[in-house]
């Protein structure tokens, strides 16, 4: 199976670090994304749009409101990229 950001946590973290302009060694799946220094409404939208570009998964504002950590985002896109959209 080809490794993508929805089935490989390391790729997901690299992708997230790049998109949110955070050094790779400064983030982990346990990070609460709203506490990240570069998290803002604009960067959230950019991040969601890039996830869509990479995985074809759309995350709604209601879904995002229920998530806390980067691991929660990873689990959601893994779940939805398996056809559960």
């Amino acid at each position: 199976m080809e490794e993508k950001i929805y089935n490989n946590t390391n790729l997901f973290l690299k992708f997230t670090a790049t998109e949110l302009l955070i050094p790779f060694d400064k983030i982990s799946l346990n990070n609460e994304f709203r506490g990240l220094p570069t998290w803002s409404s604009l960067n959230a939208l950019v991040y969601i749009s890039r996830i869509n570009e990479e995985t074809n998964v759309l995350i709604s504002s209601i879904e995002l409101a229920d998530l806390i950590t980067l691991n929660d985002i990873y689990n959601l896109i893994s779940f939805k990229s398996n056809g559960a959209i």
Partner: peptide, 12 residues
């Protein structure tokens, strides 16, 4: 305006 929802509805 909810930017994420506008994006999602537009793309859908």
């Amino acid at each position: 305006l909810n930017g994420i929802d506008v994006f999602n509805y537009s793309l859908t």
